[in-house]
Amino acid sequence: MLLKFSFLNSVICCCLTWALSVLPVQAQDTHRSPGDALAYFGQSHKEDTRSLSHYIVAVYRESLGDLEGAIQEYQKAQEADPQSSLLYLSLASVFIQKDKQAQAIKELKRSIELDPEAVHPHALLALVYSASGKPDLAAEEYILAFENATKQEPENIEIYKSLGAIYLQQKKLKQAEGIFKLIIKLAPADPEAYFYLGSIYYDLKEYLSAEKELKKAIKLKPDYHEALNFLGYAYLEQDRNIDPAGVMIKQALVAEPENGAYLDSLGWFYYKKRNLKEALSYLEKAAYFLSDPVVYDHLGDVFLKLGNSDSAQLNWEKSLKLNSGQDQVKAKLLKLTNHGQ
């Protein structure tokens, strides 16, 4: 099976690193040099330092764990300087620590209004939405965070990769394609960029383009097990290059012998080779490591070929339980049950 990427988790970790690092750094800058800290509050407060004073006290109280005291000081700082994006971001971070998500969202939205080109308010807002069970809103904020980050660091490859990953999660394939093509221009020897571009073309059903990019990824990194499995399984699904597909999948399994997706691929290879005993063995191993509708669908096909209709039905039902939108599995199950009547 095609291994679905854990893009969002890596992106969330990246954003979390940003979000959790920005406020301590700002606090360090404030304590190190009051003159530097004034830059955060605008030219109009060079003479009136009330906002800065409250901000410093707020940071100090927050560092001591006095979150209520920090909230009061941040709010006083906001009263003195209501146009500082940093103050709303800082207050939002305290509300997040107190698990007051509604207040945090309000402060972050105000921070973004004041500084729409900033990265951290969008990143923090994405984290809040993720924690609130709102993945679509979270993804929108991650996109804005990374788009802003690319403006600040236009040659940072990792930022572009994260942005491309979010586009993939959102099924915005053309935008993702543009991002990974840009990465290849900036870093033509980056195998991941070719791999992701190949996966995009596969989803777009541009199979020859997908094959071309995946081969480039493997040429740059011969032990790239994700790409080896992806291309191998793609060949199996297209009923071509069956033997080379098996070689690639076996290479992938050397790297990760307990990877359920890779075991499923090898089981499907043996199914294509009509070696049903080996197919069943590897697919059952795959099901042990990975509960996935594709694995159970494949098991159903193998059991049907072996003449075990009951086990075929059981596995197709498991597959549909995990993903009820599989029309082909429904059709197979319907045909089996009607035939048995």
Rank of each mutant, 00 (worst) to 15 (best):
I183M: 07
E158A: 15
D203C: 05
E177W: 02
Y202L: 11
Y201Q: 09
D203K: 13
Q169C: 05
I200M: 04
I200V: 04
E177M: 02
A165S: 10
P154N: 08
K161M: 09
Y167F: 10
E177K: 11
A187E: 14
K205T: 13
L173S: 08
S209P: 07
L208G: 09
K174L: 02
Y196D: 07
I157R: 13
K172A: 14
I157E: 05
I159T: 08
Y196E: 09
P188M: 10
P188L: 13
I184C: 15
Y207E: 11
I157K: 13
S162N: 12
A193S: 11
Y160F: 15
L204E: 10
A176K: 04
Y167L: 02
I157F: 12
E158K: 15
E155N: 14
I179K: 03
Y201K: 06
A176S: 03
S199T: 05
L168M: 15
P188R: 11
Q175L: 04
L186F: 15
K185V: 15
L168Q: 05
Y196A: 07
G178C: 00
Y194N: 02
E192S: 10
K161P: 03
K151R: 09
Y202T: 11
D190L: 05
L208F: 02
A176H: 01
G164I: 07
L204G: 00
S199W: 12
I159G: 05
L204K: 01
Y201T: 00
Y160G: 03
I183H: 01
E153K: 06
L208S: 06
L163E: 02
T150Q: 09
Y160N: 11
I183Q: 06
A165N: 08
Q170A: 12
I159F: 14
Q169E: 15
P191S: 00
A176L: 05
E177P: 03
Y201G: 00
Y207G: 01
S162H: 04
K205I: 10
T150S: 14
F195G: 08
D190Q: 09
L173K: 02
K172E: 12
A193Y: 03
A187N: 11
I179T: 06
P154Q: 07
K161N: 08
T150L: 03
I166C: 11
Y201L: 09
L197K: 09
L173R: 09
I157Y: 03
Q175Y: 04
E206K: 14
K161R: 14
L168I: 12
E153V: 03
P191R: 08
S209C: 05
K205V: 05
